[in-house]
């Protein structure tokens, strides 16, 4: 068994004339947490549903756990856990009934494990799914993906709808399972989350995989927007020419800029003045991506 959990070769999907993904070459190593990052509509869900054989490639092929995604779909699905991005559950069942059903379709499950997961995620299995909030439905979706201790977990936006506490619990679960050798393929449009849990990140944009990188180097290149409020007006010159700083605007007591990579030099320069507040408005993924490509040369 080689060290590759997921492998896509020139994987291409068009829905009629609409683009899904184009010529995707991708490799996820066994045992790693691979973050699949991209804005909505970039092709993340398409890629995942191709791996599950829910949709069929226009060209190219994919291998999951060394098996062909088209030919060996049943065997593959027996060994992976999947959380759909647009999660829809059987509304009229209770969470417990649904999990029993799905466990039965996989030849049974260790119910104690299911209950322990439900407890950790604070999920009520006796309530009818119809009555559950989006977050609680998401928890059921997560549990069903974990139910059979799969070798590979393919999770499409797993933390969507979860409150921060549960997101944290989910991250802990991922870490624990990685220690047992489980591989994760996690799609997200949330950079901070991917940074937190992934080993490597693939960035997909408009159907194309534009980069695959270690999380560390992604962090070095990622853009942050910073706003520093000073007690008294500061001179613009004091911040000009700092490595990684761009779009610098100093307006009396407020400094606004974007920083690629480390903010260290900027913070040190700012420390010479009295700083009242530092604000970091979230940078949209699109902006990060635009910079990631077009800005390669400019980044330090």
């Amino acid at each position: 068994m080689d060290g590759v959990a997921v492998k896509a070769e020139k994987l291409t999907k068009f829905y009629g004339r609409t683009r899904g993904v184009v010529d995707l070459d991708l490799e996820v190593r066994r045992g790693e947490v691979f973050g699949y990052l991209g804005p909505n509509g970039a092709g993340k869900t398409t890629t995942i549903r191709l791996l599950l054989d829910l949709i069929r490639p226009t060209r190219g092929r994919a291998e999951v756990l060394g098996l062909d995604s088209r030919r060996d779909g049943v065997a593959i699905r027996g060994r992976i856990g999947y959380l759909p991005g647009e999660l829809a559950l059987y509304d009229r069942m209770t969470g417990g009934e649904l999990l029993r059903y799905l466990a039965n379709l996989r030849g049974g499950a260790d119910w104690g494990y299911v209950e322990s997961l439900a407890e950790r995620l604070q999920c009520d299995l006796s309530a009818r799914i119809k009555s559950l909030s989006k977050g609680n439905k998401q928890k059921i979706g997560l549990i069903q993906a974990f139910i059979h201790h799969p070798e590979l977990l393919v999770l499409d936006e797993p933390t969507s709808g979860l409150d921060p506490l549960m997101q944290h619990e989910f991250h802990r679960l991922v870490r624990e399972m990685t220690e047992e050798g489980t591989t994760f393929f996690i799609s997200s449009h949330n950079l901070p989350e991917v940074e937190r849990i992934s080993d490597r990140v693939g960035i997909v944009r408009e159907g194309t995989l534009v980069a695959v990188d270690d999380v560390d180097s992604l962090k070095r290149k990622a853009l942050r927007r910073l706003e520093i409020h000073f007690a008294s007006p500061v001179p613009r010159e004091a911040f000009a020419g700092i490595a990684g700083v761009r779009d610098l605007a100093v307006d009396g007591v407020t400094l606004r800029c974007t920083v690629a990579g480390s903010v260290d030099a900027l913070i040190k320069a700012a420390a010479r003045f009295e700083v009242l507040n530092v604000v970091s408005p979230e940078v949209s993924l699109e902006e990060i991506f635009i910079d990631y490509y077009h800005g390669e040369g400019r980044a330090p």
Partner: peptide, 11 residues
């Protein structure tokens, strides 16, 4: 939308 979940099983 439940077909995704159903067909993700080894069936």
């Amino acid at each position: 939308g439940t077909l995704d979940l159903l067909l993700s099983n080894p069936l």
